[in-house]
Simulated assay, not measured.
Amino acid sequence: MKSLVLFLMMTAALGWAQEETQNGVTLTITLENVLNAQGDILAALHTQDTFMKGPGVANYKSVAQKGQMTFTFSNVTPGTYGVSVLHDLNQNMRMDYQSNGMPTEPYGMSGNDMSMGPPSFDAISFEVGTGDQEIAIRF
């Protein structure tokens, strides 16, 4: 009897876990204009609460490939998000700056806003609905 109860509990938990993993959508990011294959590509999916404050709600890391790269964030729930991408040339897991404060490594944001100064969440944000989405980001 105990094994039957345990089996039913495990089956119910497994079914709940499968249902949980099927919620949300897939967000496909196409990164254009990667200038070389040096270092890593680091990307983060941000909410307004995580933007410019550290890791995102989902993160991506891969060896850089010259040209175009594509990657995905899975199980993204509907809401407002922004994506930041860094070409970490020296693989130190952070953006490097010149003495005047200008970045020395390529970066990009959803919305492709390249105005002077730090980006705002409003400038890079987009809505995720109930269907899979694709966005392009250019360095």
Rank of each mutant, 00 (worst) to 15 (best):
Y97E: 08
Y97R: 10
D132C: 06
D88A: 09
P103R: 02
S62V: 15
Q65D: 10
P106A: 08
L14I: 10
S115E: 10
E134C: 04
F126H: 00
G67E: 08
V57H: 02
P103K: 00
L35Y: 12
E127C: 03
K61G: 13
A123I: 02
Q133D: 07
T26G: 11
L27W: 09
V5K: 00
T130S: 06
S125G: 05
I124Q: 01
F139V: 01
V25Y: 04
G101I: 01
K2C: 00
I41Y: 09
A136G: 04
P78E: 12
D122Y: 09
M69N: 05
Q98H: 15
G111R: 11
Y60G: 05
H87P: 08
E32K: 12
H46V: 08
S125I: 07
K61T: 14
L4Y: 01
F73M: 04
Q48Y: 10
G129P: 01
T21R: 10
M1G: 02
D40P: 14
E127S: 08
P55I: 07
H87T: 00
G117K: 03
Y60L: 09
P78N: 11
G82T: 02
K61P: 14
K2E: 10
T47W: 13
G111W: 05
S62Q: 15
T28E: 12
N36D: 15
D96P: 07
Q68M: 07
N23L: 13
T72A: 11
G108W: 02
G24D: 02
A44N: 12
Q22T: 06
E20A: 07
T21P: 06
P119D: 08
A58Y: 14
V63W: 06
V57N: 03
A123G: 04
V63R: 13
D88K: 03
P55K: 15
S125H: 03
A12K: 00
V25F: 03
K61A: 14
L4D: 04
N100F: 04
V5I: 07
S62I: 11
A37K: 15
N36Q: 14
V76K: 06
H87N: 14
A44I: 04
T50Y: 06
K61C: 13
S99P: 07
E134D: 08
K53E: 09
D132H: 00
T21D: 12
H46C: 10
Q133L: 12
E134F: 01
L31P: 02
T104D: 01
P78H: 14
P119T: 03
A136F: 05
V57L: 05
A43Y: 03
G15T: 00
T47L: 14
S120N: 05
D113R: 01
Y97S: 01
M9S: 07
K61N: 12
